[in-house]
Design a binder for these strands. Sequence first.
DNA 1: ACTAGAGTATTTTTT
DNA 2: ATACTCTAGT
Length: 825
Amino acid sequence: MAAGGIAARAMAARGGPSTADYLSGLNPEQRKAVETLDGPVLVLAGAGTGKTRVLTTRIAHILASGRAYPSQILAVTFTNKAAREMKERVGVLVGGAVEGMPWLGTFHSIGVKLLRRHAELAGLRSDFTILDTDDVVRLIKQIIQAEGLDDKRWPAKQFSGMIDGWKNKGLLPADIPEGDARAFANGKGRELYAAYQARLKTLNACDFGDLLLHPIAIFRAHPDLLREYHDRFRYILVDEYQDTNTAQYLWLRLLAQRPRSRRPTPTHEAAAGFADAGARFIPAGEAPIAVDQRVNICCVGDDDQSIYGWRGAEVDNILRFEKDFPGATVIKLERNYRSTAHILGAAAHLIAHNEGRLGKTLFTERTDPEDVKVKVHAAWDSEEEARAVGEEIEQLQRQKHPLNNMAILVRASFQMREFEDRFVTLGLNYRVIGGPRFYERQEIRDAMAYFRMVCQPADDLAFERIVNVPKRGLGDTTVRLIHDQARARDIPMFQIAGEMIETDEMKPKARKSLFDVVTMFRRWQGLLETTPHTELAEIILEESGYTDMWKADKSADAPGRLDNLKELIRSMESFESLRGFLEHVSLVMDAEQNENLDAVNIMTLHSAKGLEFDTVFLPGWEEGLFPHQRSLDEGGRAGLEEERRLAYVGLTRAKRRCHLWFVSNRRIHGLWQSTIPSRFLDELPEPHVEVAETDSSYGGYGRGGYGQSRFDTQDPFTNSYSTPGWKRAQANRTDATRTNWGNRSGVSVERVGYGESGPRARTIEGELIAKSAVDTPSRFAIGDRVFHMKFGNGTVAMIEGNKLTIDFDRAGQKRVLESFLEATA
DNA sequence: ACTAGAGTATTTTTT
DNA sequence: ATACTCTAGT
């Protein structure tokens, strides 16, 4: 049994007969969190206090002390990334691969596993399909239309959001509040939800919410089955507990709260006794019966980092833990190993403005000779902000700081663009984390729909998606005909299509096309068992004409799409079957990034959670953007507190240097608006923060029409909050409309017309080019054909260091970074 | 069946 | 402003 192997290795890995080495590096609190194995444990782990370390060490400890097999530990995370990391780190501790931990994964992946085992109890077959949001919206749209409702007035997207919300709360159609039900489509909300669920069942499909809800329903209806899992899962660990939603909470509670005294409780040996661990080693064979009626659940989280309330997370779950699990041990991890004292001081003071916290205060024992204060910078507008941040980054770069250790964390993704533009002109490498994801691209989803049809001919949504892609003359009329018949007879569309090509219901032309499609799919379905899956995938994309479609497409991104398709096939290699691959993709939506390139990281604050960087730039600290207006409008005080937690997350990402920015003017929905500094800036403690002097390096040129203002030379922000400048900023707060920081209200309007042709800074580039041209000869030569993600194909016209001027076939002449180019034949 | 033009929305994101 | 979606017209 593979599982035993790991436990055995864990045993072997523990070093000597004395304390295991994996425990030795822990501080007392961490150690307590690792060693308190009996009963419920809540670990309140502040940012940078070694949360993951505690979780992984705890697993290692459970294994090494022989208290459970790897297969008896349920460890849940939110993201695949977190799960992956946990697996790796447990592997390192335990000394080897962790293939023996079948129940370490995301809520959803574990949910799928449970549901595949017991699908029939939810009215599904075990080969059910998992629909992604796109499929769901299309399906709901059909249902809304089928009800005879106007899908304009009642957008499918909105309704899918509502369903999502209900499912997050663990509510089935019968459970939803009357008010909610009435709120949509003239009171048809409940009906529509029920119709949607029914339709999923006939499609043998699930949405993401169902992956949790079905297991909950199954466990509730089958206590005997639940008991089996109680016996199996001797230890439960939950990561990021503050992010759990109600459904996840219910799911956990079912698994964690075993009924009282099924059998008398034997004594609990002391957890710390490592030397006698061998004696307690569970003999191989059948799963041991639970000896402990207490719940060995350990939840790790940080209420101060709860930033997902808008998608159903209930901070209350973590606040309520001790009530849910009486007698719980609560351990606070407050010793921070990440940031300097100034950064921690700033973050702590900020977050203290929130009410209803469990109350932790981070501290560090580190004394840092280079402990600099958190810096607040002001800029005229977002362009200047980007320029100044670029300056700062170049300066750090000159001091040999790797770009990889720097990050720009924005509140909203539209802020990224200005930084990207700026970095392109500067020749700074950057990478955007998050953003549009690989598996959400059109070509990938189309290809996946083909594969789904081959594995699952009953997948109507896949059928509808690709039956006329590429164009085959099977338009709306034909598809609707098939669709209606399929629904009327409750039979998959593919089957109907198969029947229809035998009749003369359709026009000969359409019939021929449909015949071809059906024949193709039948052939591929026949090849499924005999042909290697990567090969089959290639065959499908070729024979269907799908690749040809993109080859014929002259638009700039067509070659990129073909590349993506190749990448898709390549990524299939590590799976043993097409089916396995489909399963993986439906749950894992991310694709890895190039970590080798030294580049500045740009991402949203949300996607920064869990990461750390030496230097962090936090632009856009203005009222309305951060805290975001919508958060305030929709969430009220709770919304504000969540924004504040987001600010806290941002600050605590920084290890050594943290720069905050706010601008006086920002373009919102195309209009320039004057803005005022974020209230969060006021909530920072003076001793740990300084207001930066204007960066003189960029002050004198390239500022469009603003050069004449004294604002440029006379910085209102000098060194502290008590300066006149800061006070002016404060004063402006009360009168935002008039503001514009002086008498410049007219100028911002002019700015609108500037666009690309406006005056731009050129000087900085010269230096940079000269510098980089020396050390790196270009991989391209003038006249080479190249491809660029954004601009498509082009010819190299000029090379200046790492920056090339390209004559693009479609986009005209642009200067771009070499690292964004690919050679084409 | 395809394209052009109008209309609309525009925080954050996982699975 | 801009990008995306949907409709209406060809």
